[in-house]
Design a protein around this nucleic acid. Structure first.
Length: 278
DNA sequence: CAGGTC
DNA sequence: TCTGG
């Protein structure tokens, strides 16, 4: 087993893994948290400022948790000084990081996430895994395995209108060259959005989720119903009586980006958590 | 009524 | 629009 010591408030593992960024991590009875990044299984546990790793190499964990890329505690201090709303959200829940997910799993996860609460998204993804690979809690199924799924099968497992989108998006993804999704990592956000939104079921909000949670687009602000309400109340009061049109989506996201800068997506996650998860 | 999309 | 928590 490996132990890492982290600066205070740099990571709250439990909150991070269950903040609605990803949906398939499991709490074990002995306090360990387990999940997959691609085909690799991770086994993590945090006690105060110590992060323990089992069955897992340190480099993989640092990459997944993005530990060497942003000193979150310092950044949060600056955001707190300039914004009371962030300050109170961070005080209630410090250490909420963004993760670097596998883009493939992230793509299908958020395709299933439209107008569904987190608990239901988890159930739907477990059903997708079971149908595609026979393992509800195993590594996320490959594209080849997902291509065997039928809409009727997924509807029977409770995906509702998302069933058709999952099947169609998998077919479209199969037309792209190998590694295409991974190749979007690090590209400009606008380019990622224009590559992803042509897929059935992926509008700008879901494209921004995939970009932020798996493709290193740290400035992305997925404007869902919660973030929209926060934007109207705190950062873009001129939108108070407006509805969430594409133009207003842009205005809301821009308001966050003006306030929080190139890591606006990280700030967004702490504010989202307070509003939607806790 | 829920982290939208077409 | 689907549907379950």
């Amino acid at each position: 087993m490996i132990s890492l010591t982290l600066p205070e408030h740099e990571l709250d593992l439990e909150a991070t893994l269950f903040s609605g960024q990803l949906f398939r991590w499991q709490r074990q009875d002995d306090g360990w948290l387990t999940g997959y990044v691609g085909t690799q299984r991770l086994c993590l546990r945090q006690t105060e400022s110590t992060l323990e790793l089992a069955e897992t190499d340190e480099a993989t964990v640092r990459h997944f948790l993005r530990l060497d890329e942003l000193a979150l505690g310092e950044q949060a201090r600056r955001w707190s000084a300039s914004d009371p709303l962030f300050a109170s959200a961070w005080k209630r829940q410090p250490g909420l990081r963004l993760l670097r997910q596998d883009p493939h799993e992230c793509f299908f996860s958020f395709l299933c996430a439209s107008v569904a609460p987190i608990a239901r998204i988890s159930k739907m993804l477990q059903a997708v895994c079971e149908e595609a690979s026979g393992e509800p809690l195993g590594p996320f199924p490959s594209l080849e395995a997902l291509l065997t799924l039928r809409e009727s099968q997924l509807r029977a497992r409770g995906l509702g209108f998302r069933a058709e989108r999952v099947v169609a998006a998998a077919r479209k993804l199969a037309e792209k060259p190998d590694g295409w999704l991974d190749s979007l990592r690090g590209k400009p956000l606008a380019e990622i959005e224009s590559e992803l939104t042509p897929f059935p079921g992926i509008g700008r909000k879901i494209a921004d989720c995939i970009a932020l949670f798996s493709l290193d687009a740290d400035a992305a602000v997925p404007v869902d119903t919660h973030i929209w309400r926060i934007a109207k109340t705190h950062y873009a009061p001129e939108l108070r009586d407006a509805s969430l049109t594409p133009a207003n989506y842009e205005r809301a996201a821009s308001a966050f980006q003006r306030k929080f800068g190139p890591y606006a997506g990280w700030a967004q996650q702490t504010l989202f958590y307070q509003q939607a998860v806790k």
